[in-house]
Structure formats: structure tokens, C-alpha cells
Design a protein around this nucleic acid. Structure first.
Lengths: 207, 207
DNA sequence: CTCCTATGTGTACAGTGTGAACATCGGTTT
DNA sequence: AAACCGATGTTCACACTGTACACATAGGAG
């Protein structure tokens, strides 16, 4: 339902560009977002994108936002209600971490876009809202369930995030790139379990 | 600190190119290695590099190798001998992890080059030898000291590596990019402590 | 001295992001 | 109704990039 003597003004170009950007980056990641290609897919001239985005980077950022929205939408449910509150909180935190790794493995291109797609410049260093709030909520639930002390709660997001993100990076671009799938599954579970268990580590070092 | 400006006409170009590549990538990372610029610095024509490297990627890989050599050279000593064998092994593992993070923060460009400088996919998935053997050795020492069980030793490299690498990535390109330095210091220590403590986590999950 | 091979040069081409001037349209103002 | 104007899309242009190709040069082997 597109070309009947293409009208000079495309309907809603901005959204179409973001869509094309999603398609383009799905496999190749951020570097696969090339302006001339995206505009060509949409059927518009190369510079048309500049009416809606300052930069190639700006388009990339918009694509990242869209990806985050989809991720957040697709990771709501599947929380089993059996078990004590403590084990439920623990399982919830576990599934957040595994979900992060799963997403990275299932959509490597989009994962990369989300992580360093957002602009380094003036833009806030706000972390991706979707997964991040899921993590903080899960950690709060841990505290509420008595599975994590208040003292150890502070900053725990970063420890968890470091572990799962690093694992994802090792699998996507690092030395675990060609590791067999079951091995990766197993290591992912161990990584998540290890960092969760380590949250309670005594940390007196502090020089 | 090798040469300044010597007869380029017939020096060994390969080494000079790698040197220039080191200089170029030190700040900007892999994307700052641009062939025409590197060759210009050395004082040869743009295509001269193709007599020594197949690709831009090949030169980048050579630069990565050189960086690794330097890193490995600069991280030998500083192992205190006091304390029980167990605490010594623990402290050693700790310092390997903190060293990794320190290197990432001190030389962000080189860090990036090393990690995904070895791009090709056909190339061996051999992990960077320098830091990697330091890690495996430290873990072996943990087992020898009785601070880590044999069962948990297997694959422990990946858990440790995930945590420190992920943390480095969060600090370099992620949401911790603009975090104050002391906060990063503190979180780094906690991350390393947490993953080490978590190595002993019971991991019965395995679906 | 001649010739061969390794190394460096020049030219050229397809692509890239992006700036500036021009074209076209829908809605607002007369 | 016609005239206008700002938002949107096009065209042309430029400075870059990596890299393929044909040529030049030099240093050693015969």
C-alpha cells in the first residue's frame, strides 16, 4: 500500500526512519545504521533524514529508545508465586539477570545499539529505563524479603549490571563468541548466581 | 620511546605503522585508527600499509597484540608475601581484577582496541594472553591455597572476567561514564569482592 | 651489469556523513 | 478566493574514508 505516484511528502517519515533503523541494526548493530541506506529503504533522499534528526547519532539514539520500549514491553510477566518471599525475590532477581543475557544473545545487534547508542554528549547519563528499573525493583524486593541487607543494597545495581553485561559482551564479541550454546547457558546461570551470592560479601577493604 | 624521526624511506615500516597506530588509538580507540592518517604520520603514502597488512583490521590486530605485550610486561610484580597462603591467593586474585579495571580506566582507547580489536571471526578465539593467564594463574593459586574448591574452579575465569569487564564497560561507555572517581573506585572494589565471594555460590539451579 | 622481487607511489573509484541552495506542499492569513 | 510561509523533501557538492590497480624504485642474486 505504498506507491501510487509517491507523494512529495512522505506520511510520517520520522517513524519510518526509526523502523528502517531497527531493521538495519538488528543484525549488524550500530555500525550497520548507515543514513544513505536507511533513507533508500524508506524511499526518500539521503538528506531527508536531517529534517528529523540532527545527526546519524541522533537517529541511532531514537532507534535505541524504540528498542528499549520493546524490551520493556516484552519482559513483564512470568513470575511464579510459589515459594517463600525470600526465594521469590531471589528468583526474580535471577530472572532479571538471565533476561538481560538472553536479550543480548537473541538480539545482539539491538543489544549493542541500546548500550552505546545513546549519545555521549549533553544527553543525560540516564541508564536505559526498561531493564534498569526492573533491576532496581528486583533488588528492592530482595531487601523487603530480607534477602539483602540495607547496607549492601546501595550500589548493588552496578555490581549486578557489571556481571551480566560483561558476560554478554564476552559472549557477543569476546572470547566466548564461539563457545557451544549449552556451555554459555551454564556459565550464564553461574555468573548470575555468583554475583547475587556475592552481594552479601563483606567489603571492608576500602583503602 | 624508540625512534623519533629516522629515514622512513627504508626503515622497517611495519613497526612504525604499529607505533603510529598505538599513538592514534590511545585516546579514541579502534575507530581512531584511520589508515590515511597513520600513514601520513609515518610519512609514507596511504597504500604503503598494504604491503604489510591485508586490511585496516589487520593493522588494528597488530596494534592490539602490541598493546597486550605492553600490558603483560607492566603487570608482573607487587605481590606482598605476608599473610597466610589463603589470604595471599585472595589478594592476588583481587589485584588481578582491579588491575584489569585500572587498565581500562587509565587507557580506555587501548582497552577497547584489545577487546574487540581482533575482529575477523576466522581468527582464533584465543583470549588476550597477558591478562588471561594472570587470571587463570591467580585462580589456580586460590585452589592450591584451599580458598576455592576444585568443583568451582572450572569456568571461574569467565565469571571473574565478566564482572570486571562489564564494570569497565559501564564506566567507559555506560551509565557510570560520568560517575565521580571515588565512587568508581569504591564500586570497583565491591564488584571484584562480590564476584570473588560469589565464586563459591551453590549453583544447583541448572534447569 | 642485468634482472628479480620486495617495497613504496599515484591514480582512481565506490561509499560515507553532512552542508547549502532549491522545490514542493499543507495550512494560515489576508 | 488568492497569496503567502514554514515545514518537509530533493539536488548538488565537498571532504573524507578504505582499497584496487598500474607504475616506480631500490637492493641483492645471477
Amino acid at each position: 500500500m505504498t506507491q501510487t505516484t509517491r507523494p512529495y511528502h512522505h506520511g510520517d517519515l520520522r517513524a519510518s526512519l526509526v523502523d528502517a533503523g531497527l531493521e538495519a541494526t538488528r543484525i549488524g548493530g550500530p555500525s550497520s545504521l548507515v543514513l544513505r541506506d536507511v533513507t533508500r529503504r524508506v524511499g526518500v533522499s539521503a538528506n531527508a533524514a536531517y529534517r528529523h534528526f540532527d545527526d546519524r547519532e541522533a537517529l541511532l539514539a531514537a532507534v535505541a529508545v524504540e528498542i528499549l520500549a520493546r524490551v520493556a514491553k516484552g519482559m513483564a510477566p512470568a513470575e511464579p508465586v510459589n515459594g517463600t518471599e525470600r526465594t521469590r525475590a531471589l528468583e526474580r532477581l535471577r530472572s532479571v539477570g538471565l533476561g538481560y543475557i538472553d536479550f543480548a544473545r537473541r538480539e545482539p545487534g539491538w543489544f549493542s545499539v541500546v548500550f552505546f547508542g545513546w549519545r555521549t554528549g549533553e544527553a543525560v547519563a540516564t541508564p536505559p529505563p526498561g531493564p534498569f528499573v526492573a533491576l532496581t525493583d528486583a533488588l528492592d524486593a530482595m531487601v523487603a524479603a530480607g534477602a539483602l541487607s540495607e547496607a549492601r543494597r546501595d550500589g548493588a545495581e552496578w555490581l549486578c549490571w557489571s556481571a551480566v553485561h560483561g558476560f554478554a559482551e564476552l559472549v557477543l564479541r569476546g572470547p566466548l563468541r564461539d563457545a557451544p550454546c549449552d556451555m554459555v547457558d551454564h556459565l550464564a546461570a553461574r555468573t548470575v548466581d555468583a554475583i547475587i551470592a556475592g552481594l552479601d560479601a563483606t567489603c571492608d577493604h576500602r583503602q
